[in-house]
Amino acid sequence: MKLQTARLEIRDFVPNDAADVHRYASDPQVTAYMIWGPNTEQETADFIVRAIGMQRRQPRLDYELALTLRESGRLIGGCGIHVSEPEQGEIGYCIDRAHWRQGYASEAAAALLRFGFEELGLHRIYATCRPGNIGSAAVMKKIGMTYEGHMREHMRHKGGWHDSYQYSILRREYMKGQMK
Rank of each mutant, 00 (worst) to 15 (best):
K2H: 12
K2W: 09
T5H: 01
A6S: 13
R7M: 05
L8P: 03
L8D: 00
E9F: 05
I10A: 04
R11C: 11
R11N: 07
D12K: 05
F13G: 04
V14G: 03
V14S: 09
V14D: 06
D17E: 04
A18S: 09
A19I: 02
A19K: 06
D20A: 15
D27A: 08
P28M: 06
T31R: 02
Y33H: 12
W36V: 10
P38T: 05
N39W: 11
T40H: 08
Q42T: 13
E43S: 10
T44N: 08
T44A: 05
A45T: 13
D46H: 06
F47N: 04
F47Y: 15
I48R: 03
I48E: 01
R50S: 14
I52H: 04
M54Q: 15
Q55D: 09
Q58L: 11
Q58T: 13
L61V: 09
Y63C: 10
E64H: 12
L65E: 04
L69Q: 02
R70Y: 02
I76F: 05
I76L: 05
I76D: 01
G77R: 02
I81M: 02
H82A: 11
E87R: 15
E87D: 15
E87I: 06
G89I: 00
E90V: 08
E90K: 07
I91Q: 00
I91N: 00
I95T: 06
R97L: 09
H99Q: 12
R101E: 13
G103Y: 02
S106T: 10
S106K: 00
S106N: 04
E107H: 01
E107M: 02
E107W: 02
A108Y: 00
A109D: 01
A110L: 08
F115C: 10
F115H: 14
G116I: 00
F117V: 04
F117I: 03
E118L: 10
E119L: 12
L120N: 06
G121V: 01
L122T: 03
I125H: 00
T128Y: 08
T128I: 12
C129L: 02
R130K: 12
P131K: 08
G132Q: 09
G132C: 06
I134Y: 11
G135K: 03
S136Q: 01
A137I: 04
V139F: 00
K141P: 10
K142A: 15
K142L: 03
I143Y: 01
M145K: 10
T146L: 13
T146M: 11
Y147G: 10
G149A: 11
H150D: 11
R152K: 13
R156C: 13
H157W: 14
K158Y: 07
K158Q: 15
W161R: 14
D163P: 03
D163V: 04
L170T: 12
R171H: 14
E173P: 06
E173L: 06
G177R: 10
K180H: 12
